[in-house]
Write a protein that binds this DNA or RNA. Structure first.
Length: 484
RNA sequence: GCGCCCAUAGCUCAACGGAUAGAGUACUAGUCUUCGGAACUAGUGAUGGGGGUUCGAAUCCCUCUGGGCGCACCA
């Protein structure tokens, strides 16, 4: 990548062993790239600049406020533009586990947030060259299932109702079914909702299967041999957490440890990403310590906590809970706003913002959603490519600022992809999509392609824009319309 | 009581510890019959309070205020 080459050159020019960071300046007058390395090393920044000016890649270097601003040669940009939109293959297997909603009710809007995020993150990691497994952990064996069965019986009037039973309208539709049957029906509905949302999985991991394979027992045996567990009050403890209750039942924690054992030791994933809701943050430390006890390096588990989505209706918060039966399902959300808008709406936000979602305003908001702006740019590009009789040729030069800016913006894509594959800030991709669309709009305004004596050359730039924009939209799994 | 997250423009959100805090929306004033106006240009408008660290803080540390969410032999 061009950025990596530049970092090497700067590193050489600096001479010292420092971590070089290359930023995209907010203002184009501050260069194509900018580095703050002069703040970190002693000596005259002008000396570094002088050294950099010798580079074949660089047209000019300016020092301003001690920042070293780099302006690239046009032919370097043009050459880089020809590069395929692909990252180097990485030799790493990543397991991304997300949604994993208990099959005790419909998929909710809150599940959707983690679902869209996990889906897009998986797409990005794959595109960045990793081998990715998308996994849904199905809680189909524990207490919740029994509770679901009892909730149905209560709805039938066979047993007295209890506060902790599920109360949604959907329970009535399950009358006559056992807990186990209900779980299967509900899981089927969840799968349908996920499919409609464009959220894809390739492994459905069953807790029941985990128990059948006796993995919890393997974990217990391992910990016992390591002398890490103790018996107290009839229960089995690891530190201050219970693994086996005094009635002999396994806790969720033990089963979860077995699940991680399966992921890291049996299936040998290099990295596991768990995308969880905010109610799980208290659990993070416990599971970290737990897997460490199993001999798994804690760095191999990366936990992303998605913040809550609050539902607002008529200016008031609606408490969402499957227990009380009050919630907005994914299906309802998709009906209201459509899948492209829903995906954009959730993906444009950083995972740790608390979101307020006003369903009353959802439709009105959806018409003003930025996703249409991005898609509109795509259709305009398609329009030019369809209308022109010429074929894309070879770009030889930039004749104005708009052309050059567009090329530069396209180049940022692979850099961003590498960055997101490290920091997991998926929302940066929506920001990029918007910026790319904006940069194209400026180009569209300033440069007339069809009829230009450089038509073939410009078509190349336009088709590169289309390819990049379409790739971004595909990563977000938002449609790329040719017409709107 | 202990812990996690959050507070940025009227509203919804951005900003690897960097330069003059950016967008969208709303509002105001314009462009304009284009390669598709779901567009473009300009203007108004913001880092909750107080300390500290740093060449540099919205960002890191402490504290206060105000929200959200957790602290089980539940899952």
């Amino acid at each position: 990548m061009l950025r990596d080459e530049l970092i090497k050159e700067i590193s050489k020019a600096v001479g010292a062993d420092v971590d070089i960071k290359l930023a995209e300046p907010e203002r184009s007058e501050n260069g194509d790239y900018s580095t703050n390395v002069a703040f970190r090393v002693a000596g005259d920044p002008e000396a570094i600049a002088a050294e950099l000016r010798k580079s074949k890649l660089i047209k000019d270097v300016e020092v301003k406020n001690k920042f070293i601003n780099i302006f690239l040669k046009d032919d370097v940009l043009i050459k880089e533009l020809g590069r395929e939109l692909k990252c180097e293959k990485k030799n790493k297997k990543i397991n991304v586990e997300f949604v994993s909603a208990n099959p005790t009710g419909p998929l909710t809007m809150a599940n959707g947030r983690g679902g869209f995020y996990g889906d897009a993150l998986s797409n990005i990691l794959e595109k960045a060259g990793y081998s990715v497994t998308r996994e849904y952990y199905i809680n189909d064996a524990g207490n919740q299932v029994r509770l679901l069965g009892e909730s149905i019986q209560a709805a039938e009037g066979k047993i007295p109702d209890q506060e902790n039973y599920y109360k949604g309208e959907y329970i009535k539709g399950l009358i006559g079914k056992s807990g186990k049957e209900a779980v299967e029906i509900l899981l089927g509905r969840i799968k349908e909702s996920l499919e409609k949302s464009g959220i894809k999985f390739n492994v459905w991991f069953s807790e029941g299967g985990l128990r059948e394979k006796k993995e919890p027992e393997k974990v217990l045996k391992f910990l016992e041999e390591k002398k890490l567990i103790e018996k107290k009050d009839g229960a089995v403890w690891l530190g201050d957490a219970v693994l086996v209750k005094s009635d002999g039942e396994y806790t969720y924690f033990l089963v979860d440890l077995a699940y991680h054992w399966d992921k890291f030791i049996e299936r040998k994933f290099d990295l596991g990403v768990n995308i969880l809701g905010p109610d799980h943050h208290g659990y993070v430390e416990r599971i970290r310590k737990g897997i460490e006890a199993l001999g798994i390096e804690p760095e191999r588990l990366r936990i992303i906590i998605m913040q809550l989505v609050r539902l607002i209706s008529k200016g008031k918060e609606v408490k969402m809970s499957k227990r009380t039966g009050q919630f907005v399902t994914m299906d309802e959300l998709l009906e209201q706003v459509g899948v492209d808008v829903a995906r954009w709406f959730f993906l444009e936000r950083s995972p740790n913002t608390h979101m307020d979602f006003d369903l009353d305003l959802a439709k009105e908001k959806s018409e003003k959603n930025p996703v249409y702006y991005v898609q509109y740019a795509h259709t305009r590009i398609a329009g030019i490519l369809n209308k022109s009789d010429a074929k894309p040729g070879t770009l030889t030069k930039f004749s104005n600022f708009a052309e050059r800016s567009l090329a530069l913006k396209i180049l940022r894509f692979l850099e961003l992809l590498e960055d997101i594959s490290k920091d997991y800030q998926v929302h940066r991709l929506t920001t990029y999509a918007y910026e790319l669309a904006q940069t194209f709009s400026a180009f569209y305004r300033d440069v007339k392609v069809i009829g230009s004596d450089r038509e073939a050359e410009l078509l190349y730039l336009v088709s590169k824009t289309k390819e990049t924009l379409a790739t971004v939209l595909k990563l977000l799994d938002i449609s790329q319309p040719e017409k709107m």
